[in-house]
């Protein structure tokens, strides 16, 4: 982790009519950092994440992702990020290897790179026997690990993870975080949302969004000290229970 900035949001705002989904959100994320992006349901996390991925145009404010402007350079942004959500991850009716090759192909990996990458990936995940099986037959935890590996197959600068570990068993959840750590060690910046508060502790820094604004942003240790709490759960509860907004 360095102090080089890879995501810079400056008063990023998104309005839907009268409704301000994200309100002047300002923060920076550093290269190789694991950044936890927390918030209650309806706090504006998804909206903010969509803007950062170049999927939605902000109403006002600025942001640069890996040095690219989110208004003008969305295509460059898409080449330099990876994205994984709980809902859409892989094609269930393709085999493991077909999925890897498809997503690798999308990001323009050469045949040689693709071959090397898929072998490496299958080996690290221990999927040798499952490589030719349909993804639908894999247990959820394996799917999620595979989905993550596919999301970083092109060694992006940043990977956005939207609740990647929901419903996964405790052992697989930890294996998933091992993958996250090793990606971060390679210099990939991790931007992650989660409902598991213990996972917030694994992040270098976390931000907590309430009603469209970032109410707190610091290391987990500092936040706990500030709110005299022993667990991140308490910090989150303290900040989010006063939320006015109940709809997404």
């Amino acid at each position: 982790m360095t102090s080089e900035v890879v995501i810079k949001a400056d008063k990023l705002t998104k309005r839907f009519g009268d409704f301000i989904a994200t309100n002047e959100v300002t923060f920076e994320v550093y290269v190789g950092e694991i950044f936890g992006f927390l918030g209650a349901n309806g706090a504006g996390k998804t909206t903010a994440m969509k803007m950062l991925c170049g999927l939605s145009k902000p109403s006002s404010g600025n942001a640069t992702i890996a040095g690219f402007d989110i208004y003008k350079q969305t295509e460059e942004i898409k080449k330099n990020i990876g994205y994984m959500s709980q809902k859409f991850s892989l094609y269930e009716d393709l085999t493991v290897i077909e999925n890897i090759q498809f997503f690798g192909g999308i990001y323009g990996l050469s045949d040689k790179q693709l071959k090397a990458k898929s072998n490496e990936l299958i080996e690290t995940l221990g999927l040798q026997n499952e490589a030719k099986k349909l993804v639908t037959s894999l247990p959820l935890g394996w799917k999620q690990k595979l989905a993550f590996s596919v999301a970083v197959i092109h060694e992006p600068k940043i990977v956005f993870l939207d609740e990647p570990t929901g419903g996964v068993d405790p052992v697989t959840r930890r294996q998933f975080w091992d993958l996250i750590y090793s990606a971060a060690d390679r210099g990939i910046t991790i931007f992650v949302t989660t409902h598991y508060m213990d996972e917030a502790e694994y992040c270098n820094r976390v931000s907590i969004m309430v009603d469209g604004v970032i109410r707190a942003l610091d290391t987990p240790a500092n936040l706990k000290r500030q709110y005299s709490a022993t667990l991140m759960d308490e910090v989150f509860y303290e900040l989010a229970r006063g939320a006015k907004r109940k709809s997404d």
Binding site: G39, A40, E163, M197, D233, F236, Y237, A240, R241
Partner: peptide, 13 residues
């Protein structure tokens, strides 16, 4: 059946 899945920590509590 999994009433709290995908629900934030405050609502869960």
């Amino acid at each position: 059946d999994e009433p709290t899945t995908g629900v934030d920590a405050v609502s869960r509590r």
